[in-house]
Simulated scan of single mutants.
Amino acid sequence: MARPLASRLFWAYKKLMSIINEPKKPKRVGRPPVESEQLRSRAPMTLVRAVDSWAEKHNMTRAEAIRCLIQIALKADHDTIKE
């Protein structure tokens, strides 16, 4: 036997209220978390110009170029140690 209309409306009202009154997570402001750490360093202008030149040749930003050059240097060092 079907429920009376009042019973169905009450159930629908309770369901709707539980959805509406559900606690919402506050939106986070700012940059999302990343698996990295910021490195800060000073370099002579000759080195900065050399990095900028290399970055321009490879169509990269300065930050991308620095990361790439560090990886190249670490790989070269690792290969030298293996030999």
Rank of each mutant, 00 (worst) to 15 (best):
A63T: 13
G30M: 02
T80K: 12
E64G: 02
F10H: 15
H78V: 14
R3S: 11
Q38D: 12
E37F: 04
Q38L: 14
I20R: 02
W54L: 04
R3P: 10
P23E: 01
P33L: 02
L16M: 09
K27P: 08
D52A: 05
K14P: 13
K14E: 11
A43R: 04
V29H: 07
M17A: 11
D77P: 09
K27N: 09
M17R: 10
I19Q: 09
A6M: 07
P26M: 01
F10K: 12
I81V: 13
N59M: 08
D77L: 07
M17K: 09
A55C: 03
K25W: 00
T61C: 05
T80E: 11
R49N: 05
D52Q: 09
P23T: 00
I20M: 03
P33N: 04
H78F: 15
G30H: 01
E83D: 08
K57P: 15
E64F: 10
W54V: 03
E64S: 01
P4L: 08
A55W: 14
R3D: 08
E83K: 10
S7L: 07
Q71T: 15
T61S: 05
I70K: 02
E56F: 10
S7P: 08
V34Y: 13
G30T: 01
A76I: 06
R42A: 06
R28F: 05
T80D: 07
S18L: 07
M1K: 12
C68E: 11
I72T: 12
I72S: 10
E35L: 05
P32L: 02
W54G: 02
P23D: 00
S36P: 05
D77V: 09
A65N: 06
A65F: 03
P23I: 00
L74E: 11
W54P: 03
K27D: 07
G30K: 00
F10D: 12
G30S: 01
M45C: 01
K27A: 05
N59S: 15
V34I: 10
E35S: 05
E37K: 07
I81L: 09
N59T: 13
L5W: 05
W11Y: 13
A76L: 06
I70A: 04
I81T: 15
S53L: 10
